[in-house]
Amino acid sequence: MKRAMMITCLFMLCACGQGEDATNDDNNAGQAETEAVLYENDVFQIEEIDGWSVDEEATAEQEQNVIFSNGTIRLIVSIVSKEQTIDTLKKDVLASFSKKVELIEDDENYIALLTNRKENIRGDVYFHQGAEHQLIFTYMTPEQHYQESKGQINALNESINVF
């Protein structure tokens, strides 16, 4: 009888310990998930990526825009209503750059621009559709650094979740 009691106690202790481990694992996973997010709001989320950071100062003054940076690459994420067509948005983005800007690529949800100045700036603009909003991801980088920036732009593009 005593033996049976001791075995039951040991079994219970082991079970409790495992339960605690499982709870700890859940907590750790949750923390890891929280740590792995670079930025999130109700409309979109960007997973953490080496080199990229949120420009808190510039973003603080904005209501509809969030600014990110990575070396010489800048990313402006703009939240716009669903009322506007992608064509209108494309025109507006094009008009936002300095004059003499050239449209060098035009796909369904993407345009590439290049300013025509002494120091050219390359713009890669992606249009995403959310449930209630549209999102414009405008990457800007000096033309001379564009080739080396491509990888980082693609990496961030793959880490975007739109709600």
Partner: peptide, 18 residues
């Protein structure tokens, strides 16, 4: 227009990268 603030930001970014 809705994209006015964005257009100003794009201007400022162009300036910052020059």
């Amino acid at each position: 227009e809705e994209l006015y603030d964005t257009s100003i930001l794009i201007e400022e970014t162009e300036l910052a990268l020059t």
